[in-house]
Write a protein that binds this DNA or RNA. Structure first.
Length: 595
RNA sequence: GCACCCAUAGCUCAGCUGGAUAGAGCGUUGCCCUCCGAAGGCAAAGGCCGCACGUUCGAAUCGUGCUGGGUGCGCCA
């Protein structure tokens, strides 16, 4: 699925007012260079056009004069004055004031802000769509839980962050693949098989022996029954060598089906499931290691024991090592154990090599924070195997701490030892869970209180944003009842110059930030920024709504004045468009009415 | 010992890839409903941005060294 922004003939993104004005600034500076008032060939990359911290400074501020002062050999204020004079010739700029060390504060024609409203109405669900991806392909790998049981809370955040990031990137012009790497090649799936075998014995009327180290969860009982249905009692008196491989596959398939269902309950759908086990026996691991060997990055050697925390049974061993230090890692990493079998790192290298070979322009991995030590070696491998051409961004997702009414929450309904994803979704709901998981930056721990997330008050950001959307729908309902045609097409014809109150323009300015925010968030791979923006947008709207209490001219539906009502409702609807677009990135359904 | 993450208002956290007088919510104090949904809104108070150097026109943001908390460090994935 490929989307592109509308672009004008200069290739500038028309939907982003900040980008539009930045282009104007740069064009103007280029013209100044052409007529000799500035040197030719200046680097404009560092020039920014941003909303100023203090609204009193104007609508937008640019640092152009300060950035160019040194290379141009001129005083910043001198450049700023000259730039200001030229910018004022453009009808979009109504004021340009030099301030401080050389800032240029710009005030834009009100019609530009009003125009944002029309843009939102005509773009609809595409309002804010960015072009930063430019059709490039990105692979987002996330969750990748071992197929040994149902998903638990620890997986929820990674699943939501990964999926929201995928949605954000798709909205920003990337072609996105969501991928799950099934860790079905290691010892855990053997443990799973043995645990399932005990449940199989149980299904046949025998007493299961859930020894230490096996998985005790009762989610394996249905697996045992399914095994009985398939094999009857034929495996009961057989040794492990007869059934291990078969049950391993059978059980992990059932676990993966459970995990898919869990993900579906979170409204997460993967595009690709890749199996670790499938890498074995295909030569893919060997090929990946050989590729590294051809670069001179594989050697036989022994590692130094880690200082300060030396394992008790440490003995120097010769291993096959990957020279990851050549690509930024701190020590070289083993890819083969001393007995010649692969370490867990080897298939991971092969898997990432596979992703590189599939032609992605960028890779993103979402890991739990406890895998932080794994980041450098993985980046080293991808750097080596792609000749530094494919960037790998790894996002570490921190712990979620569960509470109920401020008390730590430990209960588990299903699995005996941990709170499952199902527990969370059943208690909090999919939309609430998803939104809450994005109310913190990925690398800080997040408190999740089952009581507070369902509270209907402004301290609950989910409610606060949904409530704004409900109010918006309430306005639309009321204006329809009053006979106004509130279709988007009709609203887009409104005379928006009737919106002149500072509070209304402020609302439009907030809307104008949306396309810019999408760009920033997608460049940083940080979907949480969308959640924060939605909270700010909702706050702006609640404020405007309440001003109607004191100032009746700010009420949205003005009896007997259809033209003014149409313009005001257009602003309201445009806000709703932005909220819906933002919620869509979070994967949250907008509600039309609070219960 | 080494690496990575975190440290910002009393509390929980944002902070635009270096911009101006550092923001929001909660809590505290005081206001706003004969009025489209007050499940809201407005205002005040609250800060050595962990510490110290450095980079430059300019640092919460970048670099170095510390302090404190977390995570991890060869035959587990």
């Amino acid at each position: 699925m490929l989307w592109h922004c509308q672009s004008n003939e200069t290739g500038i993104d028309q939907m982003n007012l900040f980008a539009e004005i930045r282009a104007l600034v740069i064009d103007t500076l280029s013209a100044m260079a052409a007529n000799g008032s500035l040197p030719e060939g200046l680097d404009m990359a560092q020039i920014a056009v941003e909303p100023p911290r203090d609204p009193a400074h104007g609508d937008m501020a640019t640092n152009a004069a300060m950035v160019l002062a040194k290379p141009a050999g001129k005083a910043p204020r001198e450049i700023a004055e000259a730039l200001a004079a030229r910018l004022l010739a453009d009808p979009r700029i109504v004021a340009a004031d030099v301030a401080g060390p050389g800032f240029l504060n710009l005030r834009l024609a009100t019609s530009l802000w009003q125009g944002v409203i029309r843009t939102a109405l005509t773009e609809g669900a595409n309002f804010g769509r960015a072009a930063v991806g430019a059709g490039r392909r990105v692979n987002v790998e996330f969750v990748s839980a071992n197929p040994t049981g149902p998903m638990h809370v620890g997986h929820v955040r990674g699943a939501v962050v990964g999926d929201a990031l995928a949605r954000l990137l798709a909205f920003s012009g990337w072609e996105v693949t969501r991928e799950y790497y099934i860790n079905d090649g290691g010892a855990q799936v053997d443990v799973l098989a043995r645990s399932a075998y005990e449940r199989y014995r149980e299904a046949n009327g025998l007493e299961p022996e859930i020894r230490e180290g096996l998985y005790p969860g009762d989610y394996l009982i249905p697996v045992g029954e399914a095994l009985k249905a398939k094999y009857g009692d034929s495996l009961l008196d057989k040794g492990e060598q007869y059934w291990l491989a078969e049950i391993r596959e059978f059980a992990s398939d059932m676990m993966m089906q459970m995990i898919r269902d869990d993900l579906a309950a979170l409204n997460v759908k993967m595009d690709v499931y890749s199996s670790e086990k499938a890498l074995y026996g295909t030569g893919k691991i060997e090929a990946a290691i050989q590729a590294l060997r051809d670069m001179g990055l594989i050697y036989e050697g022994t590692l130094e024991p880690p200082k300060g925390k030396e394992p008790e049974d440490w003995e120097p061993r010769v291993q096959t090592l990957f020279r990851s230090t050549a690509h930024g890692d701190d020590v070289d990493r083993p890819v083969q154990k001393s007995d010649g079998s692969w370490t867990y790192f080897a298939p991971d290298i092969a898997y990432h090599y596979d992703k590189v070979q599939r032609g992605f322009d960028e890779l993103i991995d979402i890991f739990g924070a406890d895998h932080g030590g794994y980041v450098k070696r993985m980046k080293a491998a991808v750097s080596a195997l792609s000749n530094g051409k494919v960037p790998l961004d790894i996002k570490l997702v921190q712990l979620v701490k569960l509470y109920k009414n401020g008390e730590p929450f430990k209960m588990s309904k299903r699995a005996g030892t941990f709170v499952t994803l199902r527990d969370v979704v059943e208690q909090a709901g999919t939309d609430v869970t998803r939104f809450m998981m994005l109310t913190r930056k990925n690398d800080v721990t997040l408190d999740f209180d089952f009581a507070k997330v369902l509270e209907q008050s402004k301290e609950n950001p989910v409610f606060y944003v949904q409530y704004a959307n409900a109010r918006i729908n309430s306005v639309l309902r009321k204006s329809r009842e009053s006979g106004l045609d509130c279709g988007d097409a009709s609203l887009a014809t409104a005379d928006l110059s009737l919106l002149s109150h500072p509070a209304e323009i402020a609302m439009a300015k907030k809307l104008a930030e949306w396309p810019r925010l999408v760009e920033i968030a997608s460049r940083a791979n940080e979907p949480h920024r969308v959640a924060f923006y939605l909270n700010e947008l909702a706050s702006e709207f609640h404020g405007l709504w309440n001003k109607g209490n004191d100032d009746t001219s700010l009420r949205f539906v003005q009896d007997g004045n259809a033209a003014t009502s149409l313009a005001k409702v257009a602003l309201v609807r445009a806000t709703g468009v932005a909220i819906s677009a933002g919620l869509a990135i979070l994967g949250v359904t907008p509600v039309e009415e609070m219960r």
